[in-house]
Amino acid sequence: MILVNIESLSLSELRSIAEQEGIEDSPILDREELIDALRERYEDDDEADSGDANTRYLSGITDFRGIGDYVGGLPGVVDLPDDYSETEIHLVLRNCLWAYCYWTFSQQEADEIADTGRSVYLSVAIMVDGRMDRFEVPAALGDSEWNLSIPYGDGWAEVSLVSEKDGDRRIHAVSKRIQLIDSYWLRHRDEMKSSDMLYRIYLSMLTTKEGALVENQVVEDIVELFREEDIAK
């Protein structure tokens, strides 16, 4: 998508968009006021201006109008439910250090938990490099999603939806496992001192002409380790 660079728009373009957005007094606002008003409307931020190098290129300032109002549904289509009233929990890898977890309780189980005053929590199991770690994340009955911190390493993570009262622990659902991110170079720091040339080859693919590194946490950590080893040498 092409993100609109509001600052590059002319005064007439800004007025046109502001009018479409129903911003009051748009004909008499000056350029800066229009930009501020539109930014506020779209909760714009610096990210849009800096531009994501991977942004895809479609067309249009299409969200400066209410197109959603006139995309009609087909006969018989009803709104999506808020949830599906089944007890389940899912875990999805979001990045190398975070996983996204979402869950629902069936109405029956939710009522029972509420009626009996059971506490709800997520039980996270992480098997990394042959060692099992477990931790618990308290949740409210009305919660339905959470982001969980995960480590690097050879292993997996899974999360269980648990309720408890007076030592009576009940597992309601268990997610499928997700594989953790593991990297050769995060494990072989000892080889870094003798891998100068390889390091330069790696970096030659991952840096811009300004010297900026591709945005990736594992790469940043590997580069940091190489630098530390270089300093140590």
């Binding site: 998508m1 993100l3 779209y42 942004t55 959603g68 087909l74 999506l80």
Partner: peptide, 19 residues
């Protein structure tokens, strides 16, 4: 994520899933 044609994207998604 990009906040470009959000209302259209959401409408399309809801229509497909609703269908």
């Amino acid at each position: 994520h990009d906040r470009t044609s959000v209302s259209y994207a959401e409408k399309r998604l809801r229509n497909h899933l609703g269908s």
